[in-house]
């Protein structure tokens, strides 16, 4: 119970901190709307006018991924730059419990992207929010955000080992959008991308949301998404513990 409370309070604290950044807020407000507008006009121009809701959901999920990627990818580096990394690592709890709230917070702030694109589509383009499985959609969205937070933890723990992590962060946005099938169906991609897509939680999260929107078996996708994410959490936790011990031994925790 104390651990859950710590995770909840930590997440709340980091959401509050992110909401104080004019850069984070403006980017989170504007970019998903631009992407949703682009998706709507593309789908209208094509022969998929009936799939506008799907386009809005896909564009929203793209925004969630961007938030997690840039937020979690830089989670540890940002703490380092702020001079708070040593303090949070001194907390007598496992490193995963300290960093997980940051990555879940990036997923939570990314929720805005999903809500904003749906609201934008409804108000401006008259897209009817007729989800085939409304309850399934809400559950899938919550699972997806938590799952992306856990995936973010794995990213954070991996990126901290890499000197040029920001190069990888800048590179990973479009590939994950593409391979996970957020807007482009996986079936039109080359066959070799299939195995990569299958191990990404984003693929199953996007699939769960799409099935809740247009119809299909939502729960198997939700379950697989959660399963892969828990695996990411476990690997990320081990990796973080290893990184922290190594950094303490080498006295490099605060060094970039």
């Amino acid at each position: 119970m104390r651990t859950l409370r710590m995770l909840a309070l930590g997440t709340l604290a980091h959401v509050k901190q992110m909401s104080r950044s004019s850069f984070e807020v403006t980017i989170a407000l504007v970019v998903p709307i631009v992407q949703a507008t682009l998706a709507v006009y593309l789908f209208r121009a094509g022969h998929e006018r009936h799939a506008l809701l799907q386009a809005a959901v896909g564009a929203g999920l793209m925004g969630v991924w961007s938030s997690v990627l840039f937020g979690s990818g830089g989670a540890i580096q940002n703490q380092r730059w702020q001079g708070t990394l040593e303090m949070i690592m001194l907390v007598p709890r496992r490193p995963v419990l300290v960093i997980l709230p940051i990555t879940v917070a990036t997923g939570l702030t990314g929720t805005y992207a999903l809500l904003a694109t749906l609201a934008w589509g409804r108000l401006l383009y008259g897209i009817r929010l007729d989800f085939v499985h409304p309850v399934g959609f809400v559950v899938a969205a919550v699972v997806c955000i938590v799952a992306l937070g856990m995936f973010g933890l794995l990213l954070a723990s991996t990126f901290v080992l890499m000197r040029n992590a920001n190069a990888l962060t800048n590179t990973l946005e479009y590939p994950i959008w593409l391979v996970s099938g957020m807007l482009v169906p996986i079936t039109v991609l080359p066959a070799w991308t299939g195995p990569i897509a299958a191990v990404l939680p984003t693929t199953w999260g996007a699939r769960a949301l799409r099935e809740a929107t247009t119809g299909g078996p939502v729960w198997p996708s939700v379950t697989v998404c959660l399963g892969i994410s828990l695996l990411c959490l476990a690997v990320g936790s081990i990796s973080l513990t290893y990184v922290e011990r190594r950094a303490r031994a080498a006295a490099t925790l605060a060094l970039a």
Partner: peptide, 23 residues
Amino acid sequence: GTLLVGPLFQLLFFAYLGRQLQV
């Protein structure tokens, strides 16, 4: 990573989306 690989994936993303939507 930022200036060569990123734009390439952006191109592929929109090319595949364009193919799918026949825009």
